[in-house]
Amino acid sequence: MDGAWIALTLTLKVAGWATALNLVLGVGVGYMLARKRFWGRDLLDAAFTLPMVMPPTVLGYYLLVLIGSQGPLGSWLKQQFGINLIFTWQGAVIAATIVAFPLVFKSARAAFESIDPQLEQAARVLGVREWGVFFRVSLPLAWRSILAGLLLAFARATGEFGATLMVAGSIPGKTQTLSIAVYEAVQAGQDDVAGALVLVTSVTCMAVLLAAGRLVPGRVAGQG
């Protein structure tokens, strides 16, 4: 059972980091797409949505090509900082972040777009500067939807399998997350271990979904 706990903590660590990264990236990209007009906006939106529709293994392959020791980013990181991301838990974080990213930026964009632009203008006229407008008007109003998106992203990151396996492999205690551990246990015929792992995973995901359900946008304070 120790293995299961180690896998669970590792999974939560990876999913937690992936969610934290998505909070910053997803909210930033969502706000930019909702409020700024620029050439190629639709193209960018489609590109950021790709991870949702592409098979995770394909994403994993792209990642391997990009950050592998032969890849452009990977070799640069290796030379400059001596960092290797392949077969590390940080690599798993990157994979999980990318897979869950569309869930966050999509809900953030929708939430920002549903805010009446006049509310932001009203704040500006009342003497609040741009950063203040974002943190004191836009973000509080969009927060519940974003939070719901983040919880879904957390659940998605927890269950991430394909891309993580490709990038981080399956090293017990180092990169073997719950979903990968389940696969390995079944492959090895350890049905009791697999059962325990499946139970832990199911309970975790259920808890996250219940929390997300409490934050659906329908409960957001009506506008105006």
Binding site: D116, Q118, L119, Q121, A122, A123, R124, V125, L126, G127, V128, R129, V137, P140, L141, A221, G222, Q223, G224
Partner: peptide
Amino acid sequence: PAQRGVGFVFQNLALFPHLNVRENVAY
């Protein structure tokens, strides 16, 4: 707009829905 010192009442009023009356006025 933040430095103009101009008051603006919008057609739909644009009250902040997440803030109470006091917080809105004190904004």
